[in-house]
Design a protein around this nucleic acid. Structure first.
Lengths: 239, 239
DNA sequence: GTCTATAGCTTGATAGAC
DNA sequence: GTCTATCAAGCTATAGAC
């Protein structure tokens, strides 16, 4: 029993210390926010689910809004690190050429879909939360930009190399469509289950990934190849 | 002045009658729900914005939830009718062959993007609301299914004819990705403005439509052609 | 149909004992 | 760090005058 230093004080089944309390609050908040959205979950709901006192949210996080952002940030950092690692690996492996579009998209989406499928209920809830935030007028523009833009810029830089001479706007709009398709998947609303009368299931993320990558890659090629190879033939069409 | 029947009683600038009150409440609710979501908007917020009394929401709609569903339904019926008309026109024009994929997708998306772009603030808000509902764990599965599945089934039937022998699941997942890309567009969160440093603008829906159609058409072809023409080459890939 | 008034609760947040 | 106790403000909903 050499572990009696003060770096892990009183680490037992009963009293787990302030860090454990923080994590219990974050875990409970994550699930409730994902299920019902920011505004319909009260601080009391969260602390009751976490099995801690009401006042501790304000002690540890300041207020409800800051708790929300902490939930959002906690897993974003892990995700972004892995996605950048994967992207770098793909780029290195393809050198000196640019990687295939499919490989770039896979590096971007696989770490997310894999965790949502197999990371446990915390990850599942987190991605459902992302789905709501991404499509929210209130939070979408600010929070997604703040926590995910760095990794998106790296991703777009890789795609820029895959489509030399491509108009920047085609790349950004193509990414926008990918973002919408991906985050709707995270929501797992069950709508496709109803629509397909059971042929497809919202929670079958392996099926999604298998299809999302070629679908999106084809979309990128449709927009980003034509703008460089056939700029004159581009139709000027009003809506 | 032959219009003195009781079908339009007291139609003046001051007292506009109960139907006008209903519409004022719906208009205000639509904008507020779109801006801040269902739960963060109070009945008082709505009636204050509408310039009517608090109690009238309950008189006219029963409760807050039923008001929400009425807002959602009001424009859905108009939209669905026009989309079915457009789809039918495209199908008739192409007979006896199936229409081009691009034409089918255009019939599905144009009525929406056109109204969001040029229909005024009520339509704009309505589509932002759709964006949130579609990605919501709480409302998405139920409400989108209830109000939009009939038109989606007609749309998928047309695509089925365009991809004869295609696996049903490819059609449904392809539609799912379209739905995500489209509804994120409706949210107009400003994220792409930040990401592209102004090169793309969330509210430039003409640009979106010009790109969404070929992007999605290419995606559909990537998934729905291969499943019928090259079933043996289909890779069995785990996530 | 519209309004006033209010019942009955829940909310986010905090002050202060331990 | 954690808890008890409480506050002021906000909420949905309704009863009843007009």
């Amino acid at each position: 029993m050499a572990k009696t230093t003060k770096s892990a004080p009183l680490r037992g089944p009963r009293k787990a210390g302030p860090e454990a309390t923080r994590q219990k609050i974050l875990d409970a908040a994550e699930i409730l926010f994902a299920e019902r959205g920011f505004h319909s979950v009260s601080v009391r709901d969260i602390t009751a689910a976490a099995g801690v006192d009401v006042a501790l949210v304000h002690y540890h996080f300041g207020n409800k809004q800051l708790l929300f952002e902490t939930v959002f940030m906690r897993r974003a950092e892990l995700l972004n690190a892995e996605r950048l690692r994967r992207l770098e690996a793909v780029v290195q492996r393809a050198k000196p050429r640019a990687p295939k579009v499919e490989e770039i998209i896979d590096a971007f989406t696989h770490p997310l879909l894999d965790r949502s499928a197999r990371g446990g209920p915390g990850w599942k809830a987190y991605f459902a939360l992302i789905a709501q935030v991404n499509n929210s007028t209130e939070f979408g523009g600010l929070m997604m930009t703040r926590y995910f833009d760095p990794v998106v810029h790296a991703f777009i830089a890789a795609l820029r190399r895959a489509f030399p001479g491509c108009d920047e706007r085609e790349l950004y709009w193509s990414y926008h469509f990918l973002s919408g398709a991906l985050t709707l998947t995270f929501a797992e609303t069950g709508r496709i289950d109803n629509l397909s009368q059971g042929a497809c299931r919202s929670n079958d993320l392996d099926s999604v990934h298998q299809r999302l990558v070629p679908y999106v890659a084809a979309g990128f090629r449709a927009l980003c190849s034509r703008s460089s190879t056939t700029p004159a033939r581009r139709k000027r069409k009003t809506l």
